[in-house]
Every structure is written in structure tokens, then in C-alpha cells.
Simulated scan of single mutants.
Amino acid sequence: MSAARRTCAAAVLLAAASGLAASAGTPAPAAAQATAAAAFAPPDAQRLDYRLQPRRIAENTWVIEGEVADFSRANGCNIINTAFIATGDGVLVINTGPSRLYGEQQRRAIARVTGEPVRQVLNLNLHPDYFLGNQAWADTPVAALPGSIAGMQREAAAYEDNLYRVCGDWMRGTQAAPAREPLQPGTLELGRHRFTLQRLHGHTGDDLVVLDERTGVLFAGGLVFAERVPSTPHADPAAWLASLDTLAQWHAQQRFALVVPSHGPVHAGLAGVAQTRDWLQWLGRLMADSAGRGIDLSELLRAPVPARFARWGAQPAELQRSLVQWYPGHERRALERAQR
């Protein structure tokens, strides 16, 4: 995509947008804060209807937004953004949601928008809401990075148990179906679209990022969170920050104009990258400083968060999970330093 065309595309996207609050330490430029209004609708629990509403965000490109929240029965465990692109020679689907029901309803939602056949499904990482809808796509090639497939296979039973416990009837009939095709990074050409498939890591061991070179839309997966606390069960903070630097370099090169995170509002520019970086750096400093001062985990779990994070989705649950996961390591390292 040429710089001139990408600039034009960004202007069109921004013309339809409304502001994403810049909650990183330094306010982002207005263009980097812009986002289109989200279209999440609360699901109908009685009918087990997710009420999926595809929203066009760019040329032949639609997103189906999940709630910016934690898993719950009230939202049907639908907290993920899935997407699809009608390329002129078939549809590319990105992520399949948290359940068999979601995948089936996703298929019907796509068919209401386009008559093109679905050619390819991609799961961007190993987390359950990225692939537990794969059952509905058994007749379609479903691909992921090799490390993601291994993780899906390793953790499938635990994912099923956890989401059945949290989401109840929404998980009816769901059996984990990991992606079947190992994906190698590179280029995918489909119809009028050329996609860059890039392997990064940090949120998980294998994070697939998809860049549509035609429209300048970046599908950033779990590397970018917007207005939501990042989840960290498979995270490597240093690698994650390095991957965010890579995405910032891509933006400086005008390779993308719009970001579709897997969790949080679709937005233009680097607002989500900045928010995710700010959170990871703040959390690392908090744990290191607290361990050095001898603060125990129970006290840390009760500590308030800075105002810029306080209203984010999945707060305080995701913070508490990260502290329980990571803080003992910080305490151990602080004790080792004190004993030297």
C-alpha cells in the first residue's frame, strides 16, 4: 500500500471515528486517539443468541466486537474481536470466538454480509476465545502458528473446563478443535488483498499479526489491548515490549492506519500500543519496587491503581491474576539481592 493511498485511507477512517481516550502517560495525538463507535450488543441469554453485529471498518473489512470486559455468563464469554475480509476471491476470517455457538453464529453473520465463500480461517494465538469456535469451521482450512497449535493441544481440556464453569450454557456442545494447519510467516495473497503474516511474541510464545497491505488495517491480536487490562497467563513482558516497538516502527513507516486489537476498541494510530506499553512498564515497576520494600502480595492486591487505568475493562481481575502469577518471582529476586 503506497504512502499516499494509506494517508487517504487513514483520513477516511478518521472521518468516521470518535475519540478513544488517551490513557497513557503522555496524551497521544488526536489522530492516534480516534476510533469508530463499538457495536457490541449484550447477548440474549434465554435464546443463547450472541447478537453478533458485523461493523464495516474499511474496504470489504468487518469486525465483530466483543465486550471490553472479563469472561462472564452475562456476556457469553464474548470478549474478543473477530473479523473478516471479503477479498473478491473468498473470505479470510480472523479468530473464531469462545464457543461452538459463537462460531456457528459467526458463520451466519458473515453469510448475511457477503456471498463470497470462506477460504481461510486464522487463529492469532492459543487463548481459548481465539479458537474454541473452530468446530463451526470444520470444512474450512484453519491455520495458526505452530507454537499456538501446540499450546491449544496442550491446554484444550483446561480451557474447556474453565469456560464451562464461567459461561455455563453458552458453551453447550463445545469441544476444543485446535487449528489444523501450521502457518509459516510470510505473505498471503487472496483476491485483491495481500496480507503480511508476521510472527511476534510476548503476549504468548507465538503471536500472529496480520497486516492487510491493501487497506492498512492491522490485526494485532493479543499484543495490543485498548481500554482493557492486558491478560498475561503466557506473557513474557520484555519480549512483549520489544514486539510493541516493532509495531511502532511499522506505524512510523506508514504501513498501517487502523488497529484491530483482539480486546478493546478498534482505533487509529498507536493509542493501543501506547496503553499496552504503559501498563506493562507500570506493572513491572510496581512489582520490583514493592518487592524491594518488602510489601507482601496480600497488601499489593489491595493497592489502588493509577487513575489512568482505573476504568479499563477487566479491572481489577486481570491485575490480580498478573500479580499472583508474577509477584512471587520479584520477591524471590529481591531476597536474593538482599542476601548477597
Score class of each variant (00 low, 15 high):
226 A>D: 02
226 A>Y: 02
226 A>C: 03
227 E>C: 15
227 E>H: 13
227 E>D: 15
227 E>G: 13
228 R>T: 04
228 R>M: 09
228 R>H: 10
228 R>Q: 14
228 R>L: 04
228 R>S: 07
228 R>W: 12
229 V>F: 02
230 P>V: 01
230 P>E: 01
230 P>K: 01
230 P>N: 00
231 S>C: 15
232 T>M: 06
233 P>I: 06
233 P>C: 01
233 P>A: 04
234 H>A: 15
235 A>P: 02
235 A>I: 01
235 A>F: 04
236 D>G: 01
236 D>T: 01
237 P>K: 06
237 P>M: 07
238 A>R: 04
238 A>D: 01
238 A>T: 07
239 A>K: 11
239 A>R: 08
239 A>M: 07
239 A>T: 01
240 W>H: 09
240 W>S: 15
240 W>I: 14
241 L>Y: 03
241 L>G: 02
241 L>K: 06
241 L>T: 05
242 A>R: 00
243 S>W: 12
243 S>A: 10
244 L>V: 08
244 L>Q: 08
244 L>S: 14
245 D>G: 05
245 D>H: 13
245 D>A: 08
245 D>I: 08
245 D>V: 15
245 D>L: 06
245 D>C: 12
246 T>F: 03
246 T>W: 03
246 T>R: 09
246 T>L: 05
247 L>C: 05
247 L>Y: 04
247 L>G: 02
248 A>R: 09
248 A>H: 03
249 Q>D: 06
249 Q>C: 11
249 Q>R: 13
249 Q>I: 15
249 Q>N: 12
250 W>S: 00
250 W>D: 00
250 W>K: 02
250 W>E: 00
250 W>H: 00
251 H>R: 12
251 H>P: 09
251 H>N: 12
251 H>E: 13
251 H>M: 09
251 H>G: 06
252 A>S: 13
252 A>F: 12
252 A>M: 11
253 Q>M: 15
253 Q>P: 15
254 Q>I: 14
254 Q>D: 15
254 Q>F: 15
255 R>M: 12
255 R>D: 03
255 R>S: 07
256 F>N: 14
256 F>A: 11
256 F>R: 08
256 F>C: 11
257 A>C: 08
257 A>S: 14
258 L>G: 08
258 L>E: 14
258 L>D: 06
258 L>R: 13
259 V>G: 11
259 V>C: 09
260 V>R: 07
260 V>E: 11
261 P>F: 01
261 P>Y: 09
261 P>A: 04
